[in-house]
Write a protein that binds this DNA or RNA. Structure first.
Lengths: 232, 232
DNA sequence: GCAAAAGTGTTATCACTACACCCATGG
DNA sequence: CCATGGGTGTAGTGATAACACTTTTGC
């Protein structure tokens, strides 16, 4: 034992991004604990005695969404003294990427949770807005160079869907010809024979991820958006 | 107060990188605490009761090096249950970038600290090697797109020094003509009239950072190395 | 005068961007 | 038949990478 040192509460908070084929959204819950009860917040919980961070964040995500095997990544550790007014609590934030339609099948209704369009979220407790902002930045940065956004898509998706996802994240419009060429050149996409007819009369071809190549290239540096130099 | 929750020790560990004009180095200390006493480790300490993470990591860095105002950035929070065999301790790791010659003037000799070439470091306690590896990766990644390596250099430096720094970080050789052109094209460098005659007979011109532009471009995405797509 | 390191230009290739028209279909 | 969104090709431009010789000077 280390004596005379301060032991501190350690929370895990999850920024859960979802995509429904049209818009990027954020999954929020209404806080159940006493203070600020009923206010919107990120899904979170305390690190347990014998729980690694990764285990803990997956547990918390599963409690809310029922989902396992979802992409999660550590965002940042927030340690300001007064970030939680009840008692000093440091928080390790994770972000998760989810295909909203898959989530709908597995949702846990014990919590009052709701998807909010990323551009129109309610006021959040504590420093949660700061966490969300940082997560958006990181996602944007990462998506410019790595094929991470596929984690938000269902198994079959169309190029227009993919493009509207990118456009939502980067808050700008891309030329569809260049976009298509750029994405195809990654060799990560496998064109399907069938089309999605929901979005248009002509119908858009479905694509699937080439999972082998995807795994191999996940950390590779690709150029997925035009003019990356204008990013921030 | 949140009841029935586990409170945990929170440590801050600093990965301190230094550059001496020739090689990239790592500053390590011999552990003073009981267990594993005398073994090499990162400089660290516990988060204090009323101390933010940033304050704490700066405090720890200053205790060892005497330096303030040094570039520091949070790396990652390590939370595995058994990472510290004495008592569960989570650690938030930071990395710092230092010009070694400046450090020499201010060193605190209370600790037994030593610079090790990054490619030849001793065995470290706990998960500190993992932290160092991750920090090297992150530095490499970041240095490919942002002008962060200037934080390792003295006020006046030469192009050959800068190049050997890059080559050390990326563990490869660059063409000096292309390197020079690429770095000059960032407009961050101001050529001085005097030369450094230490490294060669002919002497190499000194450069200084254009601090205004540097601050403005620190988060911009630049292309500072050839073939960034081959990274990782 | 020679060894050792610094400095400098050109060319070919590739990647990127901008741009406009035809296609398929449901109504 | 027409409105809607999906799909495709080209040409000009700019960035990148490959490459070799001259300069300076301490010894």
């Amino acid at each position: 034992m280390y004596h005379k040192q301060t032991r501190i509460l350690v929370a895990l908070d999850c920024i859960i991004f979802g995509f429904d084929g049209l818009d990027l959204k954020l999954l929020l819950v209404q806080r159940g604990l006493e203070y600020e009860k009923g206010k919107w917040s990120l899904m979170g919980g305390f690190v347990r005695k014998n729980e690694d961070f990764d285990k803990g964040s997956s547990r918390i995500l599963k409690e809310l969404t029922g989902l396992e095997g979802v992409y999660m990544e550590q965002l940042f550790a927030f340690g300001d003294v007064n970030r939680d007014p009840i008692e000093r609590t440091v928080s390790v934030a994770y972000f998760a990427l989810i295909d909203i339609h898959q989530y709908e099948e597995q949702i846990n209704t014990d919590y009052h949770a709701e998807w909010f369009p990323i551009k129109n979220t309610p006021k959040l407790i504590f420093d949660h807005q700061k966490m969300v902002d940082m997560a958006k930045e990181k996602l944007k940065y990462k998506a410019a160079f790595h094929p991470i956004l596929f984690e938000l898509l269902p198994e079959k998706f169309t190029l227009p869907q993919l493009q509207s996802l990118f456009e939502g994240i980067f808050d700008s419009q891309f030329d569809k010809r260049n976009f298509s060429r750029k994405l195809q050149s990654t060799k990560l996409l496998i064109k399907q024979k069938d089309k999605d007819k929901e979005g248009s009369k002509k119908g858009a071809y479905y694509y699937k991820l080439d999972k082998r190549r995807y795994a191999a290239n996940f950390h590779a540096i690709l150029n997925l958006i035009p003019n990356p130099g204008n990013l921030k």
